[in-house]
Simulated scan of single mutants.
Amino acid sequence: MIWFDAALESPVDDGLLRRCIATLLNIPSENVDVVHSLSKIKDAPATCVVEDRGSDSYSQLITVYVSESLPCPYVLDAAAQLARMFAKSLLLVDDATANPYSFVCVSSAGQHSVVLVDPNELDKNNRYVIREPAGGRC
């Protein structure tokens, strides 16, 4: 099952992704696969699918899949811990609204706030550009 999706402020290497996800789930890092294609998913207890969309901010997308039997922390708590471990902010879908341009931005300090991304950039260029709050930062 999908645990969560996130867009990272800047790219993180596969080894760091593996170690950090293992820490979050309290499992050995060898039980976490990091792949760059859905077709590469096997039967690991946890898998992180990475999609790199370029060099812009928030262009590395990760989707974390976990086995049904694996207990997972609450998504916002896990995202805050990941952001602190990566020392980078990340964007999560804002499930509290139907607005497709609303995201939860988790800062590198683990604080979260709701931000809006530029609709044109997302729709036309598939880029996450923070429009609000003013200044484009979380």
Rank of each mutant, 00 (worst) to 15 (best):
M1P: 13
I2S: 11
W3V: 08
D5K: 11
A7G: 07
A7D: 12
L8I: 15
E9H: 05
V12A: 02
D13L: 05
D14Y: 03
G15H: 05
L16T: 02
L17S: 00
L17H: 00
R18T: 05
R19S: 03
C20H: 02
C20T: 00
I21S: 00
T23Q: 00
L25N: 03
I27A: 01
S29H: 02
S29Y: 00
V32W: 00
V34N: 00
H36C: 00
H36W: 04
K42H: 04
K42Q: 06
K42L: 01
K42D: 02
D43P: 01
D43T: 00
D43W: 01
P45H: 00
P45V: 01
V49I: 15
V50D: 05
R53T: 13
D56Q: 12
S57W: 10
S57T: 13
S57A: 12
S59K: 07
S59V: 12
Q60F: 09
Q60R: 05
Q60M: 15
L61Y: 03
V64T: 12
E68N: 09
P73H: 13
P73I: 13
L76K: 06
D77L: 09
D77H: 12
A78F: 10
Q81Y: 09
A83D: 09
A83Q: 06
R84S: 09
F86I: 03
K88E: 04
K88M: 07
S89D: 14
S89T: 11
L91W: 11
L91E: 11
L92G: 14
D94Y: 05
D94A: 07
D95Y: 10
D95S: 09
D95V: 09
A96G: 03
A96K: 06
A98T: 15
Y101A: 07
Y101K: 07
C105S: 15
C105K: 15
S108M: 07
A109R: 12
A109T: 14
H112A: 08
S113A: 08
S113G: 08
V114F: 07
V114M: 07
V115G: 14
P119N: 08
D123F: 01
K124S: 12
N126K: 10
I130A: 07
A134I: 14
G136A: 13
R137W: 11
R137T: 15
C138W: 14
